[in-house]
């Protein structure tokens, strides 16, 4: 497997290809992917793009379900924390 580099909250992260963004964030030990409307920390729940708890901003687009998006070279991922 080849590696690629994404940026998570501005910091570079090397990940193998075929990884989802959610998995990459877990590898980077990001505890909360997003804050709920009342500020609670949240992270992945369903793993299949249903629950929307793993939403992050990818390349400037908010509300992307990180568990069903594969990492791409130079992808910019921003979480709420």
């Amino acid at each position: 497997m080849t590696d690629l580099t994404i940026r998570v909250n501005g910091r570079p992260l090397r990940v193998p290809t075929g990884l989802t963004v959610a998995a990459a964030l877990a590898m980077a030990d990001v505890p909360a992917f997003r804050r709920s409307v009342h500020g609670q920390p949240r992270s992945a729940l369903c793993g299949m793009g249903i629950c929307a708890e793993c939403r992050v901003t990818i390349d400037g687009l908010a509300h992307q379900r990180s568990c069903v998006v594969l990492c791409r070279e130079a992808m910019e991922v921003v979480t709420d924390d």
């Binding site: 990940v15 193998p16 075929g18 990884l19 989802t20 959610a22 998995a23 990459a24 877990a26 590898m27 992945a44 793993g47 299949m48 568990c67």
Partner: peptide, 8 residues
């Protein structure tokens, strides 16, 4: 599923 996609 997450583990299969690389979740440690």
């Amino acid at each position: 599923l997450l583990v299969k996609s690389g979740w440690p």
